[in-house]
Nucleic acid binder design. Structure first.
Lengths: 199, 199
DNA sequence: CTGGTCATGTAACCCGTTACATGATTTC
DNA sequence: GAAATCATGTAACGGGTTACATGACCAG
């Protein structure tokens, strides 16, 4: 049960509809959780049943009706309790890493292509985080903002997300360089003697 | 279907039993995948049925019997094919990030405690990766190793894992410092005017 | 004699992903 | 006229986590 808390945390920034939340899960909140709209609607209904959020119907003329959700006192309590339970360390679960792990046994071209593609995506995300961070801190520099602002949680998580993508980018480039140079200079290396890869 | 490929990739280093693989998934391979022994046994049986690995019974006197698995040619093909399909970018899914996101609305003590705990775990993992990397490259320095070694995939994934944990550590310390300084100097900040957090 | 290592599995449950379903309005 | 945005859901499937189950040997 972790998505529930992610939703609650995302909802702390103010009243949101399911649709708006889905968008938020696409950018800011995606640092620490990702999911489609479907599961959000489901989760919001569950949270409402349990009294952790309250939904308010908004009838609209030129748009479909929507429900705006707010975290209740019980919801805050739930988060409070959640924060006291020690949580397990996270890890990277990434197909690209699997490919690189196997890079010595398969054709390098495919792996390199993936690495380059990913590097590009990562640098794009870094840029997106940068503008998000800038928007949050406004005129202030980071240090002053973190000291003075009334809300720093979202900023801190964005910093983590940015660092992750920056690392991702750097690593992809490094791995690409290594694999590329090996592809060209393959004859220079000693062939394995004791345990050769089976064909 | 991604665990299957993680298992295949992990098995490329040589013949392993399910039990040994489970250990490997605890250290080296855990960079890109984590799972318990149960699922490994299940997955190995599936892979064997599909002819992607072959199991060899080893009767032991003073230990329970075991089965040693090897990747087949079909298994390599499977990996090859896997590497051609473009994969989706990964992201961090972390309870700790959820807590930090909500840090402005809940008691800071709990969050800070978690951050400190995590920082310690992360620095421990960095050390573990460092010794693993050192063991892999032996006498050589990193640059020479990456140019000359017959196998660099596992080294590269470990580098990614190390960077991730190092970032983790740095971020936890930063977040701790920020939240700590805010806890002590709370009166200095302006109270929110337009939208106050509900109690 | 307690706890850890070696060794392998089954079963249940929760969660996440994907596909399906609908429908009006605005923008290109 | 096509595509994107707003807006909310249901249903099925697959995968991951956790609990349960067994059993011998070895070290403290």
């Amino acid at each position: 049960m972790a998505l529930r808390h992610a939703v609650l945390a995302a909802l702390l920034n103010g009243e949101r509809s399911g649709y708006q939340l889905a968008k938020a899960f696409d950018i800011g909140v995606s640092n620490f959780w990702q999911t489609g709209p479907q599961q959000l609607y489901l989760e919001l209904n569950k949270l409402e049943e349990q009294g952790l959020v309250t939904g308010r119907q908004v009838i609209q003329q030129q748009r479909p009706n929507k429900r705006m959700f707010t975290v209740t006192a019980a919801g805050i309590d739930e988060l409070e309790q959640f924060a006291t339970a020690t949580c397990k360390p996270s890890f990277i679960r990434d197909d690209l890493m699997v490919m690189v792990q196997a890079a010595d046994s398969i054709s390098l071209d495919a792996v390199v292509r993936q690495l380059e593609e990913r590097a590009q995506i990562a640098s794009g995300k870094v840029a997106a985080y940068d503008s998000l961070l800038h928007a949050m801190r406004g005129e202030l520099d980071e240090e002053s903002f973190l000291q003075q602002a009334t809300q720093v949680g979202p900023y801190l998580t964005c910093l983590r997300g940015r660092a992750f993508e920056a690392e991702n980018h750097a690593w992809c480039q490094r791995a690409t360089a290594v694999l590329r140079s090996r592809a060209s200079g393959q004859h220079e290396r000693i062939q394995p003697s004791k345990r050769s890869r089976r064909a």
